[in-house]
Simulated assay, not measured.
Amino acid sequence: MKYYIIVFKNTLDAMNGEKALKEENYIFKMMPTPTAITQSCGICVRIEDKKYIDEIIERNIIRYKNIYIKEENGFKEVV
């Protein structure tokens, strides 16, 4: 199953990102950052709908470090 991971530079950005996404009524989960993506904050956002990812990027809703897509063979950077 494909899904997207938004990783943050630090915990403050992750907390602010969570708040902003809640205010925008996005459907997401906070989760530990996968070990395959180690150079980031320890918590990240998981989103399953690509439409949300496109809106987040286009509208610059949150401050993030990178966005990855989880595919069968691991994580691939989107942005």
Rank of each mutant, 00 (worst) to 15 (best):
D13F: 05
N66A: 08
M1P: 10
M15S: 06
K9I: 03
V79M: 01
R46N: 04
K9S: 04
Y64M: 04
E77C: 13
I57K: 15
Y4R: 01
K22I: 06
I43K: 03
C41Y: 03
K29D: 11
I61S: 06
F8A: 06
K9E: 03
N10D: 15
G74Q: 10
I62M: 09
N60Y: 07
D13Q: 11
I67F: 04
I61P: 04
Y26F: 15
R63I: 05
K29V: 04
I57M: 15
G17D: 01
I5F: 01
F8C: 07
P34I: 09
Y3P: 06
I5M: 03
K76W: 03
K51N: 15
I69R: 14
M30I: 09
C44P: 00
E18F: 00
E58V: 07
I37A: 12
N16Q: 10
I67N: 02
K70L: 09
R59F: 12
I57E: 14
K50V: 14
Q39L: 08
R59Q: 15
K2W: 07
L12I: 13
G74P: 10
A20P: 03
G74W: 10
L21M: 14
N10V: 03
V79L: 06
F8P: 02
V79S: 07
K50R: 15
K70R: 15
K70D: 07
E71W: 03
N10Q: 08
N73D: 14
P32Q: 08
I57S: 13
K65L: 13
A14I: 01
C44L: 03
I56L: 13
I53D: 12
M15Y: 04
Q39C: 00
